[in-house]
């Protein structure tokens, strides 16, 4: 269930959705595979808060996060036939989201390389990304908003490593594969992110 906090610039917190009923979920997936958009919408409603949170934290941009979330669900619809019931649907979606995001990042890097644009995010030297919207938690709202804003303001490369490792619990080798970063670079990005966050929260 999602909870809306009625504050102008704050958002919208999220109470975690209840754990899925696997049988009900499987039934919805089966109906959606047959082209039932209503069943797919039910799957969407149950999972979109989590996918959007991931997209927003990784991109730090509401428009990008919105596009990415749309892409993830369109992609999921087209690939429903490959979803095997041995995984939770949310886990399957999560993989699609992370892979879509990093495929997009690689595409952006290629484009930047072609036009000679500086500031590859692997160096983390770009100006901080702006976040025009934020998050809140039902408990510790202000603290969480501060942290979310500080995460959003991190350089993109450092932010992605921090989100994957410290929020989502990915292992170093998994992050290295997704980002293409060497493990030493990855650790440097992670430590840099943590240092910047500690400094930001101390202010």
């Amino acid at each position: 269930m999602l909870t809306h906090l009625d504050e102008p610039e704050t958002f919208i917190a999220a109470m975690p959705s209840p754990p899925p009923d696997r049988d009900a979920e499987r039934a919805l997936v089966d109906r959606a595979r047959g082209g039932d958009v209503g069943a797919f919408e039910a799957l969407y409603r149950a999972n979109v808060g989590r996918v959007y949170a991931l997209a927003l934290r990784l991109t730090a941009d509401r428009r990008d996060a919105t596009e990415l979330t749309q892409d993830v669900f369109v992609h999921a619809w087209r690939r429903l036939g490959t979803f095997r019931g041995d995984a939770v649907f949310a886990t399957w979606l999560h993989r699609i989201a992370v892979n879509s995001l990093f495929m997009r990042v690689r595409g952006d890097r290629r484009r930047a390389a072609r036009i000679g644009a500086p500031g590859d995010d692997a160096t983390g030297d770009e100006p901080p990304a702006a976040l025009d919207a934020g998050y809140a938690r039902v408990v510790d709202v202000e603290q969480a908003v501060d942290l979310e804003r500080a995460i959003a303001a991190l350089p993109p490369g450092a932010r992605r490593v921090f989100v994957l490792y410290d929020i989502l619990g990915y292992r170093h080798e998994e992050i290295a594969r997704l980002t293409g970063l060497a493990e030493g670079t990855l650790r440097a990005q992670l430590h840099r992110a943590r240092k910047l966050l500690m400094e930001a929260l101390d202010r």
Binding site: A14, M15, V48, Y52, A53, Y135, R137, A144, M198
Partner: peptide, 15 residues
């Protein structure tokens, strides 16, 4: 910092 990060909201209401 790490404790706070791990307990951030898992879901955010989408547009």
């Amino acid at each position: 910092l790490l404790d706070q990060s791990r307990s951030l909201a898992a879901e955010v209401e989408p547009p």
